[in-house]
Design a protein around this nucleic acid. Structure first.
Lengths: 112, 112
DNA sequence: TCAATAGTTCGAATATAGTCGAACTATTGA
DNA sequence: TCAATAGTTCGACTATATTCGAACTATTGA
């Protein structure tokens, strides 16, 4: 069962993390994973072709934002929130909090 | 004395702020302003041509990261840190903290 | 009034990123 | 063994960003 390479914490680069988060689609993925983890890619596609989704997940993985475990045919994604927080304390939390009141496609009916 | 338009807090957009910060040169400007405010553009150029500097300052201003006041012939820049913090609590602080141990060109000899 | 200063604007060139269809790979379950 | 599933890779295209020189504007101080 082949797995992805994920950067170790000490290789996390702030510019790469900020860039990874500075895209509406990728930010929505991060928000959804923050609500429910882990998740396969499929339910997070949001109407996009698989190749685009795959590209964005690669950006998230390379930055260290997402960890993907291959289980059978599905790729299970989770946030590397603890690692991110140990390297860049408060960053992910601040980002998630910054958009928590904004609508999140696919989660319109989630009660608060 | 003509002045710039700066977006009001309620128009701040997280994606734009993250994008503004996700560039090495712009992040260095933000770090330098966090150390000493306000400053004109000139000492922050870092060897770049003026047109590039001007472009990056425009990105920072449009995102709401930097406030520029025109005083005579110099454009004095400061961080909109309080406003940023009221809109996106903890974000700027987390970003600055994330890189505080990294070298900052032009500040190599600052004692700690 | 005029030169110097500080920074902008323009336009073109280059680089980086995002999008998408089509072909591909690995795994599972029948 | 074979079809279905989940996602990747490739290559081409488009869009967005960055870079830079050159010409420009506004203000000041001599």
């Amino acid at each position: 069962m082949k797995q992805y390479d994920h950067p170790p914490i000490e290789d996390f680069d702030l510019i790469a993390v900020l860039h990874a988060l500075a895209d509406p689609y990728r930010l929505s993925v991060v928000r959804k994973l923050a609500i429910a983890q882990p998740q396969p890619c499929a339910p997070l596609q949001g109407g996009r072709p698989k190749s685009s989704t795959s590209h964005h997940f690669m950006v998230l993985r390379k930055a260290g934002v997402v960890y993907t475990e291959i289980i059978g045919t599905t790729h299970m994604n989770r946030l590397r929130d603890a690692e991110l927080n140990s390297r860049f304390p408060g960053l992910l939390e601040a980002v998630l909090k910054a958009v928590e009141k904004e609508p999140l496609e696919g989660c319109e009916n989630v009660p608060r």
